[in-house]
Design a protein around this nucleic acid. Structure first.
Length: 425
DNA sequence: TCCTCCCGCCATATT
DNA sequence: AATATGGCGGGAGGA
């Protein structure tokens, strides 16, 4: 059998945060970030209450990291003992109270929208999971989409830097651009048209074969919104992160900015595997979209709506985030995509395009994964610098706060360095 | 009934 | 080998 082996690999987008201009006294930032990076290391597996950890801090750490699942279970047991029947039902957190959206709200509430870059903005996943009393898996869900929007960026195992909404404007600008290049607006139109046409006949399959065609047609070979410098081109940059970005792109390129789930799913699937467009894949995609939509909703970027068609009501989402102007001058006018030099790394690759990656395989540097060595880091930074220096300095005036993201990134890099050093020693 | 989507198994990636 | 990540889809709560 083995119908579809998860042929992961082939992945389209993949964003990362890079660059760092400035000839700043990075040392200062570094110092500050140090404390941030200092305060934790790999947690232990949850499973304790048998040993006796006895260093105040160690103990605390252990409690925090081990917390979530066990505590929750214990809590449930206690509740079951204490209450019965109705009471229990009322006391037990309902499914709703455990939603990703709510969790995301809690998560977001912990950090400022526009954090002071000069301050310790590091996030420890374990800590958060513990404090929020959820399993780490859930935190990953949130962090992944936040990362796709550059609201956070990973700088070490278990650690992220919080950027808040500082990069959002820029991110959206970039995503919209890519969305346009991908001809998403057109794809949406085609899909809608097809749907109607086929509706007349009979809705046999959930996924119209026509999609294949439409997807192929509009499948632009993105030259390479690639910026792999400091990026982690792990081939598995699949799903969530990528999906999240693409989902957002859809909103940014269409008017009105409403996207129905099924269309989104079809488009996203279409890009990945034009072949096996089976129902289960579709369902899975939808599930993911809900997940993503939940955190995007928490960010007030979209809201749930319904689109009514002949067929009936379909779940959809409407963009409620900031507007991104249709055409920009901030990205070096008419710069060929291949040389796009944003501070944000967008790695646009479709399965097929994947092979085109060679085109950009800058100096034989291949797949180095998450922060390997300082040497590599240094190289990539240098690379970034080069690109940046040749880049048009700043965006539009738009009175936005994205001017201060330089220190932020500097800080991030500093943190990474610190981490590297720690791990090397 | 069908939208939603929580939950956590388990494959993969990293260390 | 041990851990960290995160794909994925069963199946259950809710409207």
């Amino acid at each position: 059998m083995a119908d579809d082996q998860k042929e992961n690999a082939i992945c389209p987008v993949n964003i990362r945060i890079p660059r760092s201009p400035s000839k700043h006294s990075s040392s200062m930032v570094l110092t500050e970030l140090q404390c941030a990076a200092d305060n934790l290391q790999t947690p232990t597996k949850p499973c304790d209450n048998n040993g006796d950890p006895w260093t105040p801090t160690a103990n605390l750490k252990m409690l925090i990291s081990a917390a979530s699942p066990e505590i929750r279970n214990r809590e449930r047991e206690i509740l079951e003992e204490q209450f019965s029947g109705d009471e229990l039902e009322k006391t037990m957190p309902s499914r709703k109270e455990k939603s990703l959206g709510l969790l995301c709200h809690k998560f977001l509430a912990r950090y400022p929208d526009y954090p002071n870059p000069a301050v310790n903005n590091s996030i420890c996943l374990d800590e958060v999971a513990g404090e929020l009393r959820v399993e780490r898996r859930r935190i990953y869900d949130i962090v992944n989409v936040l990362e796709s929007l550059h609201m956070v960026s990973r700088f070490a195992k278990n650690k992220y830097v919080w950027h808040g909404r500082r990069n959002l404007h820029q991110t959206f600008e970039l995503l919209r651009r890519v969305g346009e290049e991908n001809k998403y607006a057109e794809q949406i139109q085609q899909l809608k048209k097809r749907e109607q046409e086929e509706m007349d006949l009979q809705d046999e399959a959930l996924i119209p074969k026509s999609l294949v065609k439409s997807a192929e047609i509009s499948f632009v070979e993105l030259p390479g919104l690639e910026f792999r410098a400091a990026s982690v081109n792990s081939r598995k940059e699949k799903s969530l992160r990528v999906m999240s970005q693409r989902f957002v792109m859809l909103f940014l390129v269409c008017t009105p900015q409403i996207v129905s789930l099924d269309i989104a799913a079809k488009i996203l699937i279409g890009e990945d595997q034009l072949e096996d467009l089976d129902k289960s894949k579709f369902k899975t995609k939808i599930r993911r979209l809900y997940d993503i939509a939940n955190v995007l909703s928490s960010l007030n970027l979209i809201k749930k709506v319904h689109v009514t068609e002949e067929k009936g009501r379909k779940p959809a989402f409407q963009w409620t985030g900031p507007e991104t102007s249709p055409d920009q001058q901030d990205f070096a006018e008419s710069t060929p995509t291949s040389t796009l030099h944003t501070s944000i790394a967008l790695d646009l690759r479709s399965p097929k395009e994947n092979c085109a990656k060679n085109l950009f395989a800058s100096r034989g540097k291949q797949s180095f994964t998450r922060h390997q060595s300082l040497i590599k880091l240094a190289k990539s930074i240098e690379n970034d610098r080069r690109k940046i220096n040749s880049a048009p300095s700043s965006p539009v005036k738009s009175g936005d706060a994205d001017s201060c993201d330089v220190p932020s990134k500097m800080a991030q890099l500093a943190a990474i360095c610190k981490e590297q050093l720690d791990q090397t020693k």
